[in-house]
Design a protein around this nucleic acid. Structure first.
Lengths: 205, 205
DNA sequence: TAGATTGTTAATCGATTAACAATC
DNA sequence: TAGATTGTTAATCGATTAACAATC
């Protein structure tokens, strides 16, 4: 079997499909079509069929896709048919919000570690996790099975944190600091910066 | 003069260029090149030159780009050579974090209105803005000159909020609810959903 | 069977890269 | 002048769309 490389842009759409399918399931629907799913996520039916067909034949001609079945398949493909432990670095407003965010668990993630360099925050609790000294981060992560981290520190510290994370088994980083970071080969980074998103839209105002 | 339509994907990169240029300026640099800027943002030099040249000739052969000058031009292009008032709908953890976020002001945005439907929150203060009853949102926004809004309510209310916003002059929405919303022609939406970003990366783990 | 919708191929469209003349 | 780097064109690459046979 020749494993063909799936384009990254397709992978990025799968979570959107899954999110819509889960909402459909919640409202009691059993099957859907590429057309309906496309309307939910704002993507053409042809593209949805093409994307999904990269991974197998999950639909039935004339009928469409079974929502539960397709959701299950997408979860397997995305490796979220399990729960990933996540570390948060930075216990300011953003870190706090992320640590308390209820939406993660049902979507495959559980925050288990939090770090900060502020003595006033170290030792405090967010929900039921305790903020640890950032100096102990590498050790603590290496003792855990955390492979996913979220950086929520000021821009000037983000690269330092990324460099420390490089000493651990973390392979996926969600970076809230408004700066592009450099990471070793094999580590993935995604960026969230609300100001950047807003600036994109003001062009059209 | 024929105004050619600039692809949306190019507009989306300009805020990244601007962000990098501002950091360069802060560290005292005066000029940069497409090569250097490309390294900062992880984009090829050729693409950066092509993107920037859509809007004018802002560089000098042999020298590169003056950082201050190019920043100024990008701000003009993106319409952030002014400050935009922003409304936040939803005063939970995310809304709170956004309202308190210090990073907006220097990048062209100021949160001036906040709304919630929870009687326990209405009337409370976040920084120096007071949370108002969401029933008064349309009136309050219409009396203001807010054209940008951030939705930070649970997924099940997001479409309702979007429908209400459609009765105002809001033309740009940053949606934190994990759901795709439908808006009238001419209104832009951007999405931020950390779980979706994380799920994108777990594929590769 | 007739209607619907998938999976897939070929055609189109758009974005990125490479190359280089222009010029600072 | 020699070296560097832009702005731009042409070539390449990749993604999206349209169309349709297969089939439920």
């Amino acid at each position: 079997m020749t494993t063909k490389k799936i384009p990254d842009i397709i992978i990025g759409r799968l979570p959107l499909y899954l999110r819509a399918l889960e909402r459909m399931a919640n409202s009691g629907e059993i099957v859907t079509s590429s057309k309906e799913l496309g309307e939910w996520v704002g993507i053409s039916a042809a593209q949805i069929r093409k994307d999904i067909s990269q991974f197998g034949e999950f639909g039935k001609q004339g009928t469409g896709y079974n929502i539960k079945f397709l959701s299950e398949k997408l979860r397997e493909i995305l490796n979220i048919d399990r729960v990933w432990d996540v570390a948060i670095i930075g216990a300011g407003d953003i870190g706090h919000g992320l640590a308390r965010y209820q939406g993660f668990l049902e979507r495959g993630f559980r925050v288990t570690l939090a770090f900060d360099n502020d003595p006033a925050k170290i030792g405090s609790k967010i929900g039921d996790i305790q903020v640890q000294d950032i100096d102990k981060m590498v050790d603590a992560i290496n003792k855990s099975d955390v492979k996913v981290a979220m950086i929520a520190v000021p821009a000037e510290y983000a690269q330092d944190v990324a460099d420390e994370l490089a000493k651990t088994q973390v392979k996926a980083i969600l970076n809230y600091a408004p700066i592009c970071i450099t990471v070793p080969e094999g580590v993935r980074v995604q960026y969230i910066d609300p100001a950047t998103h807003l600036q994109w839209m003001t062009y059209y105002l």
